[in-house]
């Protein structure tokens, strides 16, 4: 899901950077105003945890394997898409700078896809569905969508950049990410959510207060 350097023209990279910087400004402002200062170290350490989680490659029954992104889960647990954005932004900066996973000019677009879209889609679909169905299926659908929709948007972005035809891109990205989204992101986030709810219900305060 990480778009590498050299695939998106520079002027488009700048647009994504601008969007991410604007969201980043509001996210930092949100963190200062709404969070107890406690959450700043918490976000940092959570980012380290997410980084380790993303290393785990999980096989699916159909052969393809993938890893979790975790944007939706963080946003749901901490009760704001901004939290997911901050954590993912930190993870992606380190991945881009150290591992070359993603890139430097493509950092903006990657943070936009996973940090901005992933966490807000995950969080708001969870929030919207929670009142209609119960919270556990809402976590499943929210985290599934948080992976699938950005994947489709990547196909569109690559098409806008003139790198991949739209129809084929959408087809390839959706077939792969439906499987990964259902099994890896969806099911695992749900199991993590349910077991955290059992073991440390106090940690889910974000869901109670804001959700």
């Amino acid at each position: 899901m990480h778009i590498p350097d050299g695939f998106i023209p520079l002027w488009q990279c700048i647009i994504y950077y601008i969007i991410v910087i604007i969201v980043g400004y509001f996210a930092v402002k949100w963190a200062k105003e709404n969070l107890h200062e406690k959450q700043i170290p918490l976000l940092a350490i959570l980012a380290a945890g997410i980084f380790a989680i993303q290393v785990l490659n999980i096989p699916t029954p159909l052969g393809a394997s993938g890893h979790m992104v975790g944007a939706a889960l963080v946003a749901i647990l901490l009760g704001s898409p901004f939290a997911g954005f901050l954590v993912l932004a930190v993870v992606l900066i380190i991945q881009g700078l150290v591992f070359g996973d993603g890139g430097i000019t493509a950092l903006g677009i990657n943070i936009f896809n996973m940090g901005v879209l992933g966490s807000s889609i995950g969080f708001y679909s969870f929030k919207g569905l929670k009142s209609i169905i119960k919270d556990i299926p809402a976590v499943f659908i929210g985290s599934f969508l948080s992976l699938l929709i950005p994947a489709l948007i990547i196909a569109i972005e690559l098409w806008v950049a003139g790198r991949f035809p739209l129809k084929e891109g959408l087809f390839l990205m959706s077939t792969y990410h439906i499987i990964i989204g259902l099994v890896v992101e969806g099911l695992i986030s749900t199991i993590v959510y349910t077991s955290l709810k059992k073991i440390r219900p106090d940690l889910l305060s974000g869901v109670v207060n804001n959700g």
Partner: peptide
């Protein structure tokens, strides 16, 4: 999933 949950929990608690 339990492994991931443990990592999550540990990062929360460490935080």
């Amino acid at each position: 999933a339990y492994t991931i949950m443990m990592l999550f929990l540990k990062s929360f608690e460490k935080g």
